[in-house]
Design a protein around this nucleic acid. Structure first.
Length: 853
RNA sequence: GCGGGUGUGGCGGAAUUGGUAGACGCGCCGGAUUCAAAAUCCGGUUUCUUCGGAAGUGUCGGUUCGAGUCCGACCACCCGCACCA
């Protein structure tokens, strides 16, 4: 038996594709374009199964669309800046650049062994100055367009390492390396005005109809639009008013206190000569770092002694508290508290003995007796206890009171967003330098475009505390571009989301002189199909959407949305094991006894955990390279595509990969093994074909129609099932030489073409074995003869009272009388209706008969 | 707490507008081949059954000739956000 020789075959076809430059593309106005993009990887060292799944999905789409005649752009590159390189540098004493480039080399080879249809000429690495110089220019353009500003902002500061920590590096309020308690520090940082596009980014979500609903909702919530009012409260004996934001101005008559954030300027000011308040503020800031604390946190407040005048109740005053539940980041950092209609305000009021006055009466309650207990009433109802608002509904009262505030000149309608501006400064070495010079005399001076790129210095000491760029002996010392006096470079680098916010455009034309050629970008963009992990559902996708708009504003592009279609993929999971001490074990170290008992090598008790996302720490990782070496890329790809729909989690199993491998060999035997009564290459369809051959021919057309539809809809698991059905039918027929030779060839060739996007190497090998000298990669997707899809006879179900009692074969579109007759004649139907009256017979043409008794 | 998703055999999963539930695969069982094993091939595989059938898509109820699919009320698990005023 000829076993499929994976290694030789796969590398052979990879070489052919490369040599014939099958996947190198150019803009071609005469062809319909299709841009397929998988989220580019961070070069962490080696590819993992998540990559294999991602790129198998993308390659399938790319090859399928190519076969359909599209001009397909399918590029690959590296998201190469980032913290892991710096960590590796510290641990292994290797320069981040060297580490990154070595990883890229390894991973590129691994990807190439998968036989992916990339145009490798377009490969980019974001750590290359040829790449990042363009984003430095973009930043300067954004600055000029007013989309960039600088302001003081809080960062996580590790006092032991003397460095800024990313949020992910803060674990339970402590630095992940030093375990030191993290402090909040204020640093001047650069921000991109994403909030300027908040409304547009929100409303445009409606048009992203090829995005998963889930992602759209997440983006929607992240932007978090709310409508309310801004109201200025007069502070007694002070000139400056206290501005609050509220979505419930209708409850103003129920206000009983004011609360401001611990970081509110007023609180800071008062703390200057009130040590108890300062202490309280410090306690609030400590608590904010721990998420668990927030969940259970008690409402705490500190009475400042100041009071506000009630804006509509003459003579009433409202005490001002500093409260731990008011966020400086949202609204104005100050609120008025209406305890009856907000749960937090109610908790707070009960704790500090503040009045609780209901001003909205629930529809089913009595206005004179309604009182709020432990639960605030947040629904709609009639306004009460509110002077001129009484009797109005909540929405009516909102409109009325806002009008009133406007007339008084103390308030107005306001829209608020949860979305914050994007802070892009990172106090890191391994990132793109921010092209700014700080001059004592001139202030902030952009680096002139002619002097770009600002290149990272190579000779750094990665082990210094703090930012190595800042500690570099010479790099930051330059002359001011404006006045030529000694000045200093900005030593912060960009957030790495900066690079991934425009790489899709760079792929369209990665030329030296500019970020991308405008005509090329406008030909290829938007990306028709973007594929990647759900973990990027918010930030990366939102930043890219913003960036594209910002690029438009600066004249780079005429485009708003970068990704027309999006697919998110599920995680790769694998079984987990723990020993008696709760330590994770490698599955290979677990011994399974015949009775199913699990032990480790030393006979200790082992428990099987649930299937979890593959991760090094859980010791349940399978290395794709091993799998590809043993079974080949096609087998791995088939396994990834077979059973689970792409957006669901996929369980890795040994038997699953074995099953895929079996099918690869089965397909190979289909074309390689005699006896096979198959017609010669190029044989025309004979006029007379046998009945079984005609059935097979019909099945081929049916399968092509179904598979095409499945592939277009991302139902890859169903497409695989269809192809398997067809190949099973071919196997059933292949021994019988009854004039089906042509149909067998037709079916085999069609299978070879259809598996092209799924198992490209095997497809070429089959095609070749079938006597072709051309490539599947250049072969058009099969077309469907619609006439072949119409069946002459149809099997329809016969029910009695809705229960299946048999089936009948009738001619397509047979008249109702004859269908009813043959249905009623069924023995099994007869036995059920015998002696009973047939009340009704329901006939749905070509589908079902239901006899009602 | 708010928002979203998912519940179908031992497992992954299929089932056009309501119209033959369990496609395809994994696993398992039986058989063939083999000195033996691997590989391969053939057959079976929702459950119960008095072998006539009966029950069955998380639970309870409803609409319908007919419900996995539609409606109402719940339950469980998963994901996202979370003191957002």
């Amino acid at each position: 038996m000829s076993r499929y020789n994976v290694k030789e075959t796969e590398s052979k076809w990879q070489a052919v594709w490369a040599e014939q430059r099958c996947f190198e593309v150019e803009e071609d106005p005469d062809k319909k374009k299709y841009y397929v993009l998988e989220m580019f990887p961070y070069p962490s060292g080696r590819i993992h199964m998540g990559h294999v799944r991602n790129y198998s999905l993308g390659d399938l789409v790319a090859r399928f669309r190519r076969a359909q005649g599209y001009n397909v752009l399918h590029p690959m590159g590296w998201d190469a800046f980032g913290l892991p390189a710096e960590n590796a540098a510290k641990e292994n004493n290797v320069h981040p650049a060297k580490w990154t480039h070595a990883n890229i080399a390894t991973m590129r080879d691994q990807l190439k062994s998968m036989g992916l249809s990339y145009d490798w000429r377009r490969e980019i690495a974001t750590c290359d100055p040829e790449y990042y110089q363009h984003e430095q220019k973009m930043f300067l353009d954004f600055l000029e367009a007013g989309l960039v500003y600088r302001k003081e902002s809080w960062v996580n500061w590790d006092p032991v390492e003397n460095t800024v920590l990313a949020n992910e590096q803060v674990i339970d309020g402590r630095g992940w390396r030093s375990s030191a308690e993290v402090e909040k520090r204020k640093l001047a940082q650069w921000f991109l005005k994403i909030t300027a596009y908040a409304d547009e980014l929100l409303s445009a979500i409606d048009d992203l109809d090829r995005w998963p609903e889930r992602v759209r909702i997440m983006q929607h919530n992240w932007i978090g639009k709310s409508e309310g009012a801004k109201i200025a409260f007069k502070i007694i004996d002070r000139d400056q008013p206290l501005n609050v934001y509220t979505t419930r101005p209708d409850t103003i008559f129920g206000a009983s206190f004011m609360a401001i954030s611990a970081n509110h300027p007023l609180a800071q000011e008062l703390a200057a000569d009130n040590s108890k308040l300062a202490e309280f503020i410090a306690a609030c800031n400590r608590m904010a770092t721990s998420e668990a604390a927030i969940e259970t946190a008690e409402k705490l407040g500190f009475d400042t002694g100041l009071k506000c005048a009630h804006p509509v109740l003459e003579g009433e005053t409202l005490p001002i508290y500093v409260a731990n539940f008011v966020l400086m980041d949202y609204g104005t950092g100050a609120i008025f508290g209406c305890p009856a209609h907000d749960q937090r305000d109610l908790d707070f009021a009960r704790k500090y003995g503040l009045p609780v006055t209901a001003v909205v009466c629930p529809p089913d309650a009595d206005a004179s007796s309604f009182r709020v207990g432990d639960e605030a009433f947040t629904g709609d109802g009639a306004i009460i206890n509110s002077g001129f608002l009484n009797g109005l509904s909540v929405p009516e009262a909102k409109t009325a009171i806002i009008k009133h505030f406007e007339d008084m000149g103390v308030g107005e309608k306001q829209v608020n967003f949860r979305l914050r501006d994007w802070g892009v400064s990172r106090q890191r070495y391994w990132g793109c330098p921010i092209p700014i010079v700080h001059c004592k005399d001139c202030g902030i001076v952009p680096v002139p475009a002619a002097e770009l790129p600002v290149v990272l210095p190579e000779d750094i000491d990665i082990n210094v505390a703090g930012n190595p760029l800042d500690k570099h002996p010479t790099w930051k010392h330059v002359n001011c571009p404006s006045c030529a006096k000694p000045a200093q470079r900005e030593t912060d680098t960009f957030d790495t989301f900066f690079e991934s916010s425009w790489y899709f455009a760079r792929f369209c034309a990665p030329v030296k002189e500019e970020a991308f050629t405008r005509s090329a970008a406008e030909y290829w963009l938007p990306v028709d199909q973007y594929i990647g992990g759900i973990e990027h559902a918010v930030l990366h996708l939102l930043y890219s959407r913003f960036f594209t708009r910002a690029l438009k504003e600066c004249g780079y592009l005429d485009l708003e949305e970068p990704f027309a279609g999006l697919q998110t993929q599920g995680m790769i999971c694998h079984e987990t094991y723990k020993d008696a001490n709760g330590k994770w074990l490698f599955p290979t170290d677990v011994v399974i006894a015949e009775n199913g008992d699990l032990t480790d090598a030393k006979g200790g008790v082992v428990t099987r955990g649930r299937s979890e996302k593959m991760s090094k720490s859980k010791r349940n990782v399978i290395d794709p390279e091993e799998i590809i070496k043993t079974y080949g890329a096609d087998t791995a790809r088939l396994f990834m595509l077979s059973d689970s729909p792409p957006d669901r989690d996929l369980d890795w199993t040994d038997s699953g990969i074995e099953g895929a491998w079996r099918y690869v060999n089965r397909l190979w035997r289909l074309v390689s093994e005699p006896p096979f009564a198959r017609a010669e290459t190029g044989t025309a369809r004979p006029d007379n074909v046998s009945a079984s051959a005609l059935d097979l021919e019909r099945l081929v057309h049916k399968t092509v129609a179904a598979v095409t539809d499945d592939l277009e809809k991302f139902h890859f698991n169903k497409a695989v099932a269809r192809i398997r059905e067809l190949s099973n039918a071919v196997e059933d027929l292949k021994g019988s030489d009854d004039g089906s030779a042509w149909a067998l060839r037709f079916a085999s060739e069609t299978i070879a073409i259809m598996i092209g996007p799924l198992m490209p190497h095997l497809a070429e090998e089959m095609w070749h074995a079938l006597g072709h000298t051309s490539l599947i990669a250049d072969t058009a997707w099969p077309s469907v003869n619609a006439g072949m899809l119409i069946e002459d006879t149809i099997t329809i179900a016969v029910q009695v009272n809705g229960k299946l009692r048999g089936t009948i074969d009738v001619a397509k579109d047979a008249d109702k009388e004859s269908v009813e007759q043959s249905a009623l004649m069924l023995d099994n139907v007869q036995s059920f209706i015998e002696g009973k009256e047939v009340r009704k017979v329901i006939i749905v043409p070509n589908k079902i008969v239901n006899v009602v008794i």
